[in-house]
Design a protein around this nucleic acid. Structure first.
Length: 951
RNA sequence: GCGCGAUUAGCUCAGCGGUAGAGCGCCUGCCUUACAAGCAGGAUGUCGCUGGUUCGAACCCGGCAUCGCGCACCA
């Protein structure tokens, strides 16, 4: 960021009538970044507070989910900064192996070439070029949200530092015996030619078919030679019927299973089937996995192509016959079907079965099929040799931490997600971490290919090392100097590097056994903020990997968090938020094309408005939020309302600048208690209450509540009430009264700007500069949370002032009923026998008169006759003298009031008449009930009197 | 199948034991020298259904219904 960036000019003395976010936002983003405002020093004072942001795909672009996540995180970290914490918020991106490789391969294909033609090195270069070109998009868009992250610490999962972390992690896991290599069924994506993780598999409901196939029993005569012993007796049954949704896999069948308790087939267990089309003899086995009630109760077993069958096969020692190649076509083992694509093969197998009389029937069948998220094709369970992380011991550590005696680690907000997290850590499957791709971290394992004839086979010994030199040295020692090495061609799952994110980005593992300063200061991080959709895949992987690396086992064999920490957990809290749904409550997705572009909304309404709108919608419980949107006009009423709020603040500040006489909060000084008037004391009390409560809300992730409370304070209290009541003083010539009002206004507005800053950072930064006159090098973002004088809190006075508000409303209501022109000044009376209220009315005569358009505002204990009267409560009435009275409207109004109050009386009397209520309810509730009844009865009396006068 | 969440004003949602609120929208009137992206006033609900607990339930407990989500999948 060039230092020469022009210093931001704060809102000038004369502001325009509406706020223009576009220029303002860009200006402050540049100023913050140029000044390094969010580049913290690990040695700085202040309690450390750290957040690492969930790294988006480097080549992606901003969607509403990012905007939402960003709004939440930035609100939290900006609040903590205002609390004086030493805040690090660290940004970055991940390399998204499959996504990027898919894009690149598509490009290459369009150019008439391929990655294999290009070669690995050239392909890698090209991928980096693509990253350089498109990788700036999303970080640029994140900047436009006003994200207060430390861009100087921005990381990328493939950068050299994180590369080192990944290699170190792999090597250490291997040393701990937690990484192994072996041949297992994995989710294979034929489109990308790689294994994929569970995350990248999505179950889709499809209307498929259930093919019922006849599998003939092998005649007994032939069994003898096949099984070596003749079964006890023959039987009329000469075949079994199996059902399948994937008939092409029958070519790889190596058994048929029935339930051991199924009387229909018990006698057949041990006999064999002659597999149609293939001719292979396969045994009938008994396995409890088979549900006798489903279909025919007989299941074909294809261990090499189905996870359940794989397990059955293992239990019964059945061979695994792979009939498919890695590109999804049938292989040599498929006999005459070899070379066909798996879906063509399906048709061909069915046709052949039918032709040979083995097809019994076909039923429509709705079932779910695993689809590759990236390749958009059905995933194929395929046997292949892959690298795995043994997860059980890692998961166990995490489960134990959840039961930590001093509270669960991490702490989930909302709490219910911890259950989901625990479920995922229970009965967890080992994690396949190898990917047959080029764009990613190459696995740091070298095969000693000279031991197996120059090629990599399952039997080839391998060495895991941090560098090729290290591997070479190991090879020399173990296999001699002429051992030939070849690095594993595969790369690691992107989530492997993402799983290290909370510590790799802080410099783990460091140099020479030294803990890096960032890690020392900010690990464990304070909170992880993420959507529930990746809780299993990302959150749990981070906690599992941290458990493996951020502990020492030295102290008497008991593991301890490294560096004397109290916890090795990568984050204290996990704040789970919902999804942003579209105007029809649908999940936004690229394929559905229903995404709402945050950038469009930022351009239309400003980033502050979008952020405020998103956060304001958040309920406490991590629910999804719905964003309304009109696709015809690209407008959103919700965001527009937030934009209007921004404009309201802008104009309130504009008003203040016009009425503070060129002074600032600092030059005006603190309000002097003895000089304060009614509305001063009221707003300061409200301010004190609000600042305490908002801080509580922000601090406990109740961000939506914080936003709503501030909205109300700003609009209702400060603008609608305080400013309106204080106007005569600000405009008037009583210097003492004017100064008092200026002090209170300046103080309240400044505090409001600070409190709103986490939600609307640009606007508040700009307005704060205008109000405070602060230098361009100073930032609101780095100020402190308001510290109102506790003496300002005055609930009794808030109550007393509420009477004023109510009286004004009652008068205005009456005026509206009277039909008198709003511009016409009227003689108005407030009638109350109570001394305090009388004093209030007298003291605020001018202000109230102004608020209600009175030519004359006076107090009288009782109304004089001939007036139009309205009720404040049983103790106060308001009266107007109007030229032509609109008696019908008033009568209707009073009758309505009476009906309401009568209903209330009936309800209260009913309750009080119940002897159980008086006996069992708390006395204060009974007393309140009685007081309400008395009030209601007194009001009814007054209203009846008024109605009587009207005739 | 197992689990989770939702159901409150026309719409989007708060409230989670003392008798219902906000924003938007709506109706009426106002360009009142901060703001028409505004101001003032107003209307609007058998709180999904059904049992129970309680003096008292939108709120707690049990069922049911509808919608949504996650996990597991029966071939």
């Amino acid at each position: 960021m060039p230092e020469a960036e022009p210093a931001p000019t704060a809102a000038s003395d004369v502001l325009p009538k509406t706020y223009d976010p576009v220029g303002t936002e860009a200006r402050w983003q540049a100023a913050w970044e140029a000044a390094g405002a969010f580049h913290p020093d690990p040695g700085a004072p202040g309690e450390p507070f750290a957040v690492v942001i969930p790294p988006p795909n480097v080549t992606g672009s901003l969607h509403m989910g990012h905007a939402f996540n960003t709004a939440l995180i930035d609100t939290i970290v900006r609040f903590q900064r205002l609390q004086g914490k030493n805040v690090l918020c660290l940004p970055g991106t991940d390399h998204a192996s499959i996504a990027v490789q898919t894009i690149l391969e598509k490009q290459l294909k369009a150019e008439g070439t391929s990655k294999d033609h290009l070669g690995r090195d050239a392909f890698f270069e090209r991928a980096w070029a693509w990253k350089a070109e498109s990788g700036g998009t999303i970080v640029g868009q994140l900047r436009r949200l006003g994200y207060s992250v430390d861009w100087q610490r921005e990381r990328f999962t493939l950068d050299p530092g994180l590369n080192r972390s990944v290699v170190e992690a792999f090597v250490r896991l291997h040393q701990q015996g937690l990484i192994y290599r072996g041949e297992y069924l994995v989710n294979w994506c034929p489109a990308s030619g790689s294994a994929v993780s569970d995350l990248e598999v999505e179950m889709k409901e499809v209307e498929g078919s259930l093919w019922h196939l006849r599998y003939p029993l092998t005649p007994l005569a032939d069994e003898v030679s096949a099984a070596g012993a003749a079964p006890a007796s023959d039987h009329p049954i000469d075949h079994l019927v199996v059902a399948t949704t994937r008939p092409e896999t029958m070519l790889g069948d190596t058994g048929v299973a029935v339930n051991p308790t199924d009387p229909r087939y018990a006698h057949l267990v041990g006999r064999s089937i002659t597999l149609p089309l293939v001719g292979r003899l396969i045994p009938i086995v008994a396995d409890a996995h088979v549900d006798p009630a489903f279909g025919t109760g007989c299941v074909k077993v294809t261990p090499a192509h189905d996870p359940n069958d794989f397990a059955i096969g293992q239990r019964h020692g059945l061979p695994q016959i792979t009939v498919m190649a890695k590109d999804g076509t049938m292989n040599g083992a498929a006999g005459r079907f070899a070379g066909l694509d798996r879906f063509e093969a399906r048709k061909a197998v069915v046709a052949a079965m039918e032709a040979e009389g083995f097809l019994v029937k076909v039923e429509p069948h709705r079932h779910s099929v695993p689809y590759s998220d990236r390749g958009k094709v059905p995933v194929e369970p395929l046997l292949s040799t892959q690298w795995f992380v043994r997860t059980e011991s890692l998961a166990e550590r995490c489960r134990t931490a959840l039961d930590h005696p001093s509270g669960p680690e991490p702490r989930f907000v909302p709490e219910r997600w911890s259950k989901v997290y625990r479920d995922w850590l229970t009965d967890i499957r080992d994690w396949c971490i190898s990917r047959q791709l080029w764009w990613g971290h190459r696995i740091p394992a070298w095969f000693v290919v000279s031991e197996t004839g120059g090629v990599i086979t399952e039997a080839t010994p391998y060495l895991v090392a941090r560098t090729e030199q290290e591997a070479r040295a190991q090879a020399d020692a173990q296999f001699g100097a002429d051992a030939q090495l070849e690095q594993d061609p595969d790369v690691l799952d992107t989530w492997f590097s993402s799983g290290l994110w909370p510590f790799s980005t802080l410099g783990w593992p460091g140099e020479g056994g030294q803990e890096p300063a960032d890690l020392a200061t900010w690990y464990p991080t304070s909170v992880l903020v993420t959507g529930f959709d990746i809780i299993f895949f990302w959150v749990a992987r981070m906690t599992m990997l941290a458990g493996a690396f951020l502990q020492d086992g030295e102290a008497g064999g008991v593991e301890q968090p490294v560096g004397g920490r109290t916890s090795w957990m990568p984050f204290r809290d996990v704040y789970i938020h919902g999804l942003v749904r579209d105007e029809n409550n649908r999940k936004m997705s690229k394929s559905a094309g229903n995404g709402i572009d945050p950038v469009l909304l930022i351009e239309r309404y400003g980033a502050d408005a979008l952020r405020f709108a998103l956060v304001r919608e958040v309920a406490g419980a991590g629910q999804d939020i719905r964003l309304d949107y009109d696709r015809q006009s690209d407008t959103s009423a919700t965001v527009e309302a937030a934009r209007n709020f921004a404009n309201k603040l802008f104009n309130a500040t504009r008003f203040a600048l016009m009425n503070l006489g060129g002074e600032t909060p600092a030059s005006l000084g603190e309000p002097v208690l003895a000089e304060l008037e009614s509305e001063d004391r009221w707003i300061l009390s409200r301010l004190t209450r609000t600042s305490t409560q908002v801080a509580e809300f922000y601090g406990s992730y109740r961000l939506g509540e914080a936003a709503k409370l501030l909205y109300e304070f700003a609009w209702n209290d400060l603008c609608d009430q305080y400013i309106e009541w204080a106007k005569p003083r600000l405009f008037g010539d009583d210097a003492v009264s004017q100064t008092a009002a200026r002090r209170v206004l300046a103080r309240s507005l400044e505090a409001l700007l600070v409190m709103l800053h986490p939600l609307m950072p640009h606007l508040t930064e700009d307005l704060w500069h205008a109000v405070s006159g602060a230098e361009a090098t100073e930032f609101l973002a780095l100020q402190r949370w308001p510290q109102p004088d506790p003496d300002w809190l005055d609930p009794a006075h808030e109550n007393a002032f509420q009477f004023g508000i109510d009286a004004v409303r009652a008068i205005r209501n009456l005026r509206a009923l009277s039909g008198v022109k709003p511009s016409e000044k009227l003689s108005i009376g407030i009638h109350t026998p109570t001394a305090d209220r009388q004093a209030f009315v007298v003291a605020n005569q001018e202000k109230i008169g102004r608020l209600v358009g009175a030519s004359d505002l006076h107090w009288e204990a009782e109304p004089t006759s001939g007036q139009l009267l309205g009720l404040v409560d049983s103790d106060a009435q308001v009266g107007l003298t109007v030229p032509q009275q609109s008696l019908d409207a008033l009568r209707q109004r009073l009758q309505k009031d009476l009906a309401k109050v009568d209903k209330e009386i009936a309800g209260l009397q009913g309750r009080l008449a119940n002897p159980n209520f008086a006996g069992k309810a708390p006395p204060e509730v009974v007393a309140e009930c009685q007081a309400n009844l008395a009030e209601a009865q007194a009001q009814a009396e007054l209203v009846r009197g008024r109605l009587g006068e009207l005739g």
